[in-house]
Amino acid sequence: MKLLQAINLTKKFPNKLAVNNISLTINQGDLVALLGPNGAGKSTTLNMLIGVSQPTSGKIIFGDKSASIKDYKNEIGVVFQGSVLDANLTVKDNIMTRAHMYTRTVQLNSLIKKFELESIWKQPYCSLSGGQKRRVDIARALISSPKLLFLDEPSTGLDIQTRTKIWEVLNQLREDTGLTIVFTTHYLEESENADYVYIMDQGKVIAEDTVAGLQQKYTQNVLQLDYLTGETTTTTLDNKDEAIKILVKNAKLLTNFEYRPGTMDDVFMNLTGKEIR
Results as ranks from 00 to 15, higher is better:
Leu237Lys: 08
Arg174Cys: 08
Thr184Pro: 03
Leu225Trp: 04
Tyr187Met: 11
Thr56Asp: 01
Leu49Val: 12
Thr233Asn: 09
Thr156Lys: 00
Leu247Ala: 08
Asn74Arg: 12
Tyr72Ala: 12
Ile244Cys: 00
Leu237Asp: 14
Asn221Ile: 02
Leu117Val: 15
Asn221His: 15
Ala18Asp: 07
Asp176Val: 03
Glu168Asp: 15
Met200Ser: 05
Phe268Pro: 07
Tyr187His: 14
Leu170Trp: 09
Arg135Phe: 04
Ser110Met: 05
Glu175Val: 10
Glu190Ile: 14
Gly58Asn: 06
Asp195Ala: 04
Thr232Lys: 06
Gln216His: 11
Lys42Arg: 13
Ala141Gly: 14
Tyr218Phe: 15
Leu89Gln: 09
Leu214Gln: 07
Val267Trp: 05
Gly262Tyr: 05
Met48Phe: 12
Val84Met: 06
Val78Thr: 08
Leu271Arg: 01
Gln81Asp: 11
Asn38Gly: 13
Val52Ser: 15
Thr232Leu: 01
Arg260Pro: 00
Met269Thr: 15
Tyr125Asn: 00
Lys165Asn: 09
Cys126Thr: 08
Tyr198Ile: 13
Val52Tyr: 12
Val52Asp: 14
Asp265Asn: 15
Ile181Glu: 06
Lys147Ala: 05
Asp195His: 14
Asp159Thr: 15
Asp30Trp: 02
Val205Tyr: 03
Glu190Gly: 14
Glu258Trp: 06
Asn270Glu: 11
Thr103His: 05
Ile166Lys: 12
Lys42Cys: 13
Val136Ser: 05
His186Ala: 13
Gln54Asp: 08
Thr219Tyr: 09
Asp71Gln: 13
Asn270Tyr: 07
Lys73Gln: 14
Leu4His: 07
Leu17Met: 11
Pro261Gly: 01
Leu158Asn: 08
Ser53Arg: 11
Gln5Val: 03
Glu258Arg: 09
Asn256Pro: 08
Phe257Ser: 04
Thr56Trp: 02
Leu247Pro: 09
Lys2Val: 15
Thr235Gly: 00
Tyr187Val: 14
Leu128Thr: 12
Val222His: 07
Gly131Asp: 13
Ala251Asn: 11
Asp137Trp: 03
Ile60Asp: 01
Leu179Asn: 04
Leu35Arg: 01
Asn88Tyr: 06
Leu3His: 05
Glu75Met: 05
Lys147Asn: 10
Glu116Thr: 11
Thr25Ile: 10
Ile95Tyr: 12
Phe115Ser: 02
Asn270Pro: 04
Thr45Tyr: 09
Met1Ile: 08
Gly130Ile: 11
Thr236Tyr: 10
Asp265Met: 14
Leu148Tyr: 03
Asn193Cys: 05
Gln216Ile: 10
Thr156Asp: 00
Gly41Cys: 11
Val222Pro: 00
Gln5Phe: 00
Pro124Trp: 02
